[in-house]
């Protein structure tokens, strides 16, 4: 019995000793200034932008308490393309939406710079303090749509619409987008309209949600025919007069990412899984001397036509362009 008391005492003392004490953690190493360059070169436009930022620290562990944007103005950004050096202009202030910062986003931009597919571009940003950030990218080549794709709706198997394509470079990511183009007479005026078609509609807990295709390395995309069907039905949901609708065609666009964007997109848009916990998320960057990303993508598309009989089933007209 004595021993039990002793044991109890010992436990109690130990418990008292450690109860409630919580040690501070030095979660942060000494702050070091880093710089960030971001630029996504687009092969489908001649307007290119870049951003330059710096890192920051906040008291505590929640970085969202920072309300100051960390964009840096006054950098000299040069692009090397073919035999020419292009300069990006300084700080176009652009604020399309209200961000969480007190001040707006600041972009560097160049107008009239539209690099060719497959071309090589280098970038260097010279920051006002002399810091240099540099990188390079090679635009993807245009994809070639395969002949064994479904370019006519309804498709032969009446279940799925499959479009395949071929590429020159392996390991790139593609982001498809399918748009339905149609004209609708609204108040006597014909209005050109578009609607994005999901790959399928998911039925989750009684709620039907559209599911749009994600970027992937697959060189093909499958749309469920029922999704196209549903979109065609839904456009006239609020207009009894089906004759007001003239369906033109579907347009499938594929954005092809270069290697850098593929890596970046994979790391920022893919989760490992819901349960794994990792403390050293890979921060994909290809900027020498700093963080951020310099990458590129191009887009090309293909038209998918409708069979007239199929369109007439809905009471719509089949239009041409």
């Amino acid at each position: 019995m004595k021993n039990i008391i002793r044991l109890f005492m010992l436990s109690l003392i130990t418990v008292m000793f450690f109860m409630g004490c919580e040690d501070p953690v030095k979660t942060k190493a000494d702050f070091q200034q880093n710089y960030v360059l971001n630029s996504v070169i687009r092969g489908d436009t001649s307007f290119q932008v870049a951003t330059v930022l710096k890192n920051y620290d906040v008291p505590g562990l929640d970085p969202n308490v920072n309300t100051q944007s960390q964009f840096i103005e006054g950098s000299i950004i040069r692009l090397w393309y073919k035999d020419t050096v292009y300069f990006m202009r300084d700080s176009l202030v652009f604020d399309p939406v209200v961000h969480r910062y007190d001040d707006p986003y600041k972009f560097y931009y160049i107008d009239g710079f539209r690099p060719d597919a497959g071309s090589y571009i280098e970038i260097e940003a010279l920051l006002p303090n002399g810091k240099r950030l540099s990188s390079s990218t090679r635009l993807p080549e245009r994809i070639n749509f395969s002949e064994d794709s479904d370019y006519l709706i309804p498709p032969e198997n009446r279940k799925t619409v499959t479009i395949r394509w071929k590429t020159e470079r392996n390991g790139l990511m593609f982001l498809p987008r399918l748009t339905l183009r149609y004209n609708q007479i609204v108040g006597g005026v014909e209005v050109a309209k578009t609607v994005i078609v999901p790959a399928q509609f998911l039925n989750r807990n009684g709620v039907t949600d559209p599911y749009y295709p994600q970027a992937s390395k697959e060189t093909g995309i499958v749309y469920e025919f029922s999704a196209i069907d549903k979109v065609l039905q839904d456009i006239s949901a609020e207009d009894e007069n089906k004759g007001n609708f003239e369906i033109i065609h579907l347009y499938l666009e594929i954005a092809t990412f270069d290697e850098n964007l593929t890596s970046y997109y994979s790391s920022t848009n893919n989760i490992v899984n819901e349960y794994s916990i990792r403390l050293d998320e890979l921060d994909v960057t290809n900027i020498d001397g700093g963080l951020g990303i310099f990458c590129s993508y191009i887009k090309n598309g293909v038209v998918i036509y409708f069979d007239e009989l199929y369109i007439k089933k809905y009471g719509y007209k089949l239009g041409t362009n």
Binding site: Q32, Q33, N34, N129, G130, K131, R132
Partner: peptide, 8 residues
């Protein structure tokens, strides 16, 4: 190593 400031 900590980053050195750029030379002028």
């Amino acid at each position: 190593p900590p980053e050195k400031p750029a030379d002028k």
